[in-house]
Computed example of a mutant assay.
Amino acid sequence: MFERRLPLAVMALTLAATFATPLSQAAPVVPDRLQHSDKLVFCGGMDSPPMGFYDANQKLIGVTVDLGEAIAKRLGNKRIEWRVTPFSGLIPALLAGQCDMLVDQLFDKPERREVIDMVNYMYSSQAVVVAKGNPQGIHTLDDLSGKKVAVLNGSTIRTLLDAHNQVLTKAGKPPMNIVVYNTDTDAFQALRINQAAAYGTTVETAGYYQSMAPELFEVGVPAFARILTGLGIRKDDPQMSAAVTEILKDMRADGSYQAILAKWHIEGDRLD
């Protein structure tokens, strides 16, 4: 009787070892250049809640901050130096060697892939925020014709609105007046003090501001132009790209990735 049960016990141990193997292999290969360094320099705009921003105590918080800390920990408990950089200056800063990685919400576009490598970590879309009650009746991009729209410099929404202005012009309609700001905070402020009829941003930031002041703002043009977003790494740093790719894979497997998105109420943007 005992000898008949032994193979089952052996099989159980074998299966347990098989399922345990991925966990033992989860540690990424730390890039050679970081082997003897205890610090990572991350560049980010840090002005787009809930992605990355300062709280009331001037502490950096948000999705990208939590993600950056998780990556640094898995690269050998490195400490992080956050280098706050205007969004339009992020890629130049990376290419100039001022940071190890761009930890921000970079929309994965072909023109960006030409100059940097990207590791995707979520989806995002664009939206247009308006005053509560939508007094100017802005429901589509066409409704922005002739109106002043605030946007962040270097953002995808600016590119999309510039392109839509050409559509409006061909249709014989006045183009929108796109006003560019160096920070998302300033662009949002323009809407808040009625210097702009609308504020174009990501759905995450639009949702954050609406949740903070539902009596003052609402989404006029709902989510559109869904696209992958990611972290930026220099093309001459393939070991870093490989390490971060492995870390994101491991975080999705162990649930820590999903926990970060859930913490900031953007579970719907998770990778498929």
Rank of each mutant, 00 (worst) to 15 (best):
V10C: 12
A12I: 12
T18W: 10
S24Q: 05
A26V: 10
A27E: 12
L34S: 09
Q35G: 05
Q35L: 12
D38C: 03
L40T: 05
V41E: 11
D47G: 14
D47Q: 11
M51K: 08
V63D: 03
V63Q: 07
L67G: 10
A70G: 11
I71K: 06
N77P: 07
N77H: 09
R79H: 10
R79N: 15
P86S: 14
P92L: 10
C99H: 07
M101S: 03
Q105V: 09
K109S: 15
S125G: 13
S125R: 05
G137P: 09
G137E: 09
I138Q: 00
D142Q: 11
D143S: 02
V149D: 07
G154P: 13
I157P: 02
Q166K: 08
T169I: 14
A171V: 11
G172N: 03
P175W: 01
N182T: 14
D184C: 03
D186M: 04
A187L: 01
F188Y: 12
R192G: 00
A206Q: 09
P214M: 05
V219C: 12
V221S: 02
P222F: 05
A225H: 11
I233T: 00
R234P: 14
R234L: 08
R234D: 15
P238G: 04
E246P: 05
A253D: 03
Q258C: 01
I260K: 00
I266Q: 08
